[in-house]
Amino acid sequence: LQLFIKTLTGKTFTVEMEPSDTIENLKAKIQDKEGIPPDQQRLIFAGKQLEDGRTLSDYNIQKESTLHLVL
């Protein structure tokens, strides 16, 4: 599923993930694309901070959802 990642600077980029992927996987993918170390990434969806060990489906993140990346 394609997700939109929006940064505080207003930049938006996309990543391609599976619902079974963990937040950790997502942070690694963001590191590949943007060079931001996972330990500096905080991801927010629907007002909640996402925890590394959980999956996208745990948070009911669907295709074309927008996640906010806070550094």
Results as ranks from 00 to 15, higher is better:
residue 38 P to C: 04
residue 6 K to G: 03
residue 28 A to N: 07
residue 23 I to G: 01
residue 56 L to I: 10
residue 40 Q to N: 12
residue 17 M to C: 04
residue 53 G to L: 13
residue 52 D to L: 06
residue 4 F to K: 11
residue 8 L to A: 11
residue 20 S to Y: 15
residue 2 Q to L: 13
residue 66 T to L: 09
residue 31 Q to C: 05
residue 30 I to C: 02
residue 20 S to C: 05
residue 62 Q to L: 06
residue 14 T to C: 04
residue 25 N to A: 07
residue 60 N to Y: 12
residue 16 E to C: 04
residue 37 P to S: 14
residue 24 E to P: 03
residue 12 T to V: 10
residue 62 Q to M: 11
residue 70 V to E: 09
residue 4 F to I: 11
residue 40 Q to F: 11
residue 20 S to V: 08
residue 2 Q to C: 05
residue 26 L to H: 00
residue 8 L to H: 11
residue 5 I to C: 01
residue 14 T to A: 08
residue 36 I to Y: 11
residue 16 E to N: 13
residue 22 T to R: 06
residue 15 V to F: 12
residue 52 D to V: 07
residue 44 I to Q: 06
residue 34 E to R: 14
residue 59 Y to V: 03
residue 69 L to V: 05
residue 45 F to M: 06
residue 66 T to S: 05
residue 31 Q to H: 14
residue 41 Q to L: 05
residue 66 T to R: 05
residue 46 A to D: 09
residue 45 F to G: 02
residue 54 R to A: 07
residue 29 K to V: 07
residue 56 L to T: 01
residue 25 N to P: 01
residue 12 T to M: 09
residue 22 T to I: 06
residue 63 K to P: 14
residue 13 F to D: 01
residue 12 T to L: 12
residue 13 F to R: 01
residue 2 Q to M: 10
residue 28 A to W: 15
residue 56 L to Y: 01
residue 46 A to N: 10
residue 34 E to Y: 08
residue 18 E to T: 10
residue 31 Q to S: 08
residue 69 L to A: 02
residue 29 K to S: 10
residue 42 R to P: 01
residue 51 E to H: 09
residue 1 L to I: 14
residue 56 L to D: 00
residue 58 D to R: 02
residue 47 G to E: 07
residue 10 G to Y: 04
residue 63 K to E: 08
residue 71 L to T: 14
residue 61 I to N: 02
residue 59 Y to N: 02
residue 20 S to L: 13
residue 51 E to A: 13
residue 10 G to H: 08
residue 9 T to E: 10
residue 9 T to Q: 07
residue 70 V to D: 06
residue 49 Q to T: 09
residue 32 D to Q: 14
residue 24 E to F: 15
residue 50 L to N: 00
residue 7 T to W: 08
residue 7 T to Q: 09
residue 68 H to E: 08
residue 43 L to V: 05
residue 30 I to T: 01
residue 22 T to S: 10
residue 29 K to A: 13
residue 5 I to T: 00
residue 57 S to Y: 11
residue 37 P to R: 15
residue 35 G to T: 03
residue 18 E to V: 10
residue 18 E to K: 10
residue 41 Q to R: 01
residue 66 T to F: 09
residue 33 K to E: 15
residue 53 G to W: 09
residue 55 T to P: 06
residue 6 K to F: 13
residue 58 D to V: 04
residue 3 L to Y: 04
residue 58 D to C: 02
residue 65 S to L: 04
residue 65 S to C: 04
residue 41 Q to M: 14
residue 14 T to H: 11
residue 30 I to Q: 00
residue 35 G to H: 08
residue 44 I to F: 11
residue 20 S to F: 10
residue 47 G to D: 08
residue 6 K to N: 08
residue 4 F to H: 11
residue 39 D to S: 08
residue 32 D to V: 10
residue 52 D to M: 06
residue 7 T to V: 08
residue 68 H to F: 08
residue 8 L to C: 05
residue 42 R to F: 14
residue 34 E to K: 10
residue 22 T to H: 06
